[in-house]
């Protein structure tokens, strides 16, 4: 009787633990499969031409120069528009607002924005900017990305500022510092690494973002530096090229996918290293 129960418990334990290990292994397997496929298919078409030539018409050689340029520009615009506002709003939530009604509402709304699908943000920018201006533009793409950066930065800035102990603020105030000195020179300095990590993660989020660019920034087969016109960008080019029937376009799509993934993973690893360095110095 007892032995039977023991056996059943041991057996059940072993079964669940085997399943858990299998789940972890399959997660790693998928990561390696995705990265492996990217490397195998992407490296083959990686050449200097990719970085020096424009996207070709089907059947001829070319590169991704205009798409890479567009992606960098629009990511920069999105970050420069979204991050400062996000840090300021996060500062309000952590320093001035705290438990006021406005802060509570903003915190909830920020969570809603954070969970809003990126394609919905694209629709919003389309109706507000593209329809008003009468044409697609790189600015519209930048604004759409800024709207994705904003809630991430608000969230992390607030969290990081909240981690700064109040005793530090009080110590500074006791020395006679006005509020702005306390915030800019004490709180920001203590929370700097965390806030930078948040911004980097937000940049990583928008760098590969495709959906909101489809109908704001559109695409452009040629090199363009005009922010008021449609501009090529890597994600949309990958989307278009991958779904095309042309073999050389598909090869370029894999190549672009490899570039984006490498950039995004690098950003993630830098952000991670920063936050590890921070917790390491604190303990």
């Amino acid at each position: 009787m007892n032995a039977a129960i023991y056996r059943r418990r041991r057996w059940r334990n072993r079964a669940v633990m085997t399943l858990a290990s299998a789940a972890a292994m399959s997660g790693l397997l998928v990561l390696f499969l995705i990265l492996g496929t990217l490397l195998v298919k992407g490296v083959g078409s990686l050449s200097p031409a990719v970085f020096t030539q424009m996207t070709p018409p089907p059947g001829s050689a070319g590169g991704l120069l205009n798409a890479i340029y567009g992606s960098i520009v629009v990511t920069l615009v999105g970050t420069l528009l979204g991050a400062p506002v996000g840090i300021l709003a996060g500062t309000y939530l952590a320093e001035f607002g705290r438990d006021t009604r406005l802060a509570t509402v903003v915190r909830f709304i920020n969570d809603v924005l954070l969970s809003a699908p990126s394609i919905v943000i694209g629709l919003f920018v389309y109706t507000v900017m593209v329809v008003r201006m009468g044409h697609f533009s790189a600015w519209a793409g930048g604004v759409a990305l800024a709207l994705l950066v904003l809630p991430v930065v608000v969230r992390t800035s607030e969290d990081m500022l909240r981690l700064v102990p109040d005793s530090m603020r009080e110590a500074s105030a006791a020395l006679g510092s006005p509020r702005w000195v306390v915030i800019l020179k004490v709180a920001y300095r203590a929370a700097r690494a965390g806030i930078i990590t948040g911004v980097l993660l937000a940049v990583a989020r928008i760098a590969g973002e495709t959906a909101p660019l489809l109908f704001t920034m559109l695409n452009n087969q040629f090199m363009s530096t005009d922010m008021n016109a449609p501009m090529a960008n890597l994600p949309v080019v990958i989307f278009q090229f991958a779904l095309s029937p042309y073999k050389d376009w598909q090869a370029l799509a894999w190549c672009g996918a490899l570039i984006i993934t490498a950039a995004v993973l690098a950003l993630n690893i830098v952000a991670r290293a920063l936050s590890v360095a921070r917790t390491g110095s604190e303990s």
């Binding site: 990561l31 499969l33 990217l38 495709t210 994600p235 989307f239 996918a257 993934t261």
Partner: peptide, 13 residues
């Protein structure tokens, strides 16, 4: 890191 990979990469894969 799987969470950081852009969704378009999952799509093409």
């Amino acid at each position: 890191l799987l969470a950081g990979i852009p969704s378009i990469i999952y799509g093409i894969w």
